[in-house]
């Protein structure tokens, strides 16, 4: 299942961003989202940020994912 986890951009250098998901950081290419800025939330697929989403949408998605993960732990 391809999980869509909103990741926050914390740093940008040229076309590469450092993204943060709940404290875990990794790199993503911004080649497909040239207007992305630090503080934006993005969905990352295969190392590319493919879509931007606003803070409200990101918060809603993260809340749903947390709920789904906790249901998953209760029902292995």
């Amino acid at each position: 299942m391809c999980l869509a986890i909103p990741s926050k951009i914390v740093k940008i250098e040229n076309t590469m961003a450092v993204i943060d998901v709940e404290g875990v950081q990794r790199q993503a290419s911004l080649l497909l989202l040239e207007d992305a800025a630090v503080g934006d939330y993005v969905i990352v697929h295969a190392g590319y940020a493919i879509n931007k989403l606003d803070e409200t949408a990101a918060a809603e998605s993260l809340a749903l994912l947390r709920e789904a993960f906790s249901a998953s732990e209760q029902n292995p």
Binding site: M1, L3, A4, I43, N51, E60, S61
Partner: peptide
Amino acid sequence: RIVNRICGICP
């Protein structure tokens, strides 16, 4: 509206 927030690569 829920499923595409979880499996978001092909929403």
